[in-house]
């Protein structure tokens, strides 16, 4: 009995010794900031009240949600963010699917193509922005190529599309790698069987490949939503704090404005906690869907179970 307790103690001690750095790190640099931000969001902590801040309850949240005079961009920035997500997520998925399918069609130079597509993923973000900023300028590469004269980044109708394009361009390499590995896990026997049945390339793609990589598509959907809601840093790099084109005023860009220009840290914290709630909801839906899948996804997965099983954990 006593030996058992001792062993248990030792086991616990070993376990905690392994995660001790994590606990220290987590408490100081994750938990504490989260709590501090939460507390700040219920105060009026700002440049104006650095030392004499007081608790204001839910006022910051209520003001954000209801005071459309003070925060006219709050809801519209969410709309802009949605629009950005609509532009990027489906395009990301479709492009990844198509390009991976092409790479997976037993061609030569697969490695070369993968490498080339992956280069933006290993390029420093600021450098990519410098590059695109110059290429998209009225006298830049794009206008030179097409003989046009458009200030893409400062034109209300093109700016957001351009940011979406930059993000799709930058993410393609990584997305293709993930999608391709999912495709490679589909049992080749299924393709052979389909070929015998006389299925063409398009049919094979639609009836075998796509259902087989459905979990990966779902993964892209969720991560795309989560990262899409956090878009804003790119705009900050290009435009700075204030010179803004309305159509790229995303939620997080507005958050940066509140934090960096208005120096209203309390409202900024409230905004980031609201963002947290949005992401939380998406994640919960994701868990929900994964654990008790809606019928249509379940059906797709059942149909191509063998191909799907390996990638399901993603």
């Amino acid at each position: 009995m006593k030996a058992q307790t001792k062993q248990k103690l030792k086991r616990n001690a070993t376990g905690y010794a392994f995660i001790l750095p994590l606990i220290l790190y987590f408490v100081v640099f994750q938990l504490a900031p989260m709590l501090i931000a939460l507390v700040i969001s219920f105060t009026n902590y700002s440049l104006e009240h650095l030392t004499d801040y007081t608790f204001v309850g839910f006022e910051n949240f209520i003001e954000l949600f209801t005071n459309s005079v003070k925060y006219p961009m709050f809801w519209s920035s969410l709309k802009t963010t949605f629009f950005y997500i609509l532009l990027t997520v489906p395009a990301n998925i479709i492009l990844a699917l198509v390009v991976s399918a092409l790479l997976n069609s037993k061609i030569k130079g697969e490695k070369f193509f993968k490498t080339v597509f992956y280069i933006p993923s290993v390029t420093v973000g600021v450098a990519i922005m410098v590059m695109w900023q110059q290429m998209l300028a009225p006298d830049g590469l794009i206008n030179q190529l097409f003989g046009t004269n458009v200030d893409f980044l400062n034109n209300e109708s093109t700016a957001l599309v351009v940011f979406a394009f930059m993000s799709i361009w930058g993410g393609l390499g990584y997305n293709v790698l993930i999608m391709l590995s999912a495709m490679k896990n589909i049992d080749p026997a299924m393709y052979e069987a389909a070929e015998i049945d006389g299925a063409g390339a398009v049919q094979k793609f639609l009836y075998i490949t796509v259902p087989g990589v459905m979990p990966t598509v779902f993964f892209f959907l969720v991560t795309g939503l989560i990262s899409g809601f956090q878009v804003g840093e790119q705009m900050l790099i290009i435009y700075g704090d204030t010179t803004m084109v309305q159509s790229v005023y995303t939620y997080v860009y507005g958050l940066y404005y509140t934090m960096r220009r208005s120096c209203d840290y309390a409202t900024a914290s409230a905004m980031s906690y609201f963002l947290f709630v949005i992401i939380l909801i998406i994640t919960l839906i994701q868990f929900r869907v994964q654990n008790g899948r809606p019928k249509f996804i379940q059906k797709l997965i059942d149909r191509r179970k063998k191909g799907g099983e390996l990638v399901e954990k993603v």
Binding site: A137, P138, D139, N149, V150, D151, N154, N155, E156
Partner: peptide, 10 residues
């Protein structure tokens, strides 16, 4: 018109 002045050499 914006499309005229939003081009640099404009």
């Amino acid at each position: 018109p914006e499309e005229i002045y939003n081009s640099n050499s404009g």
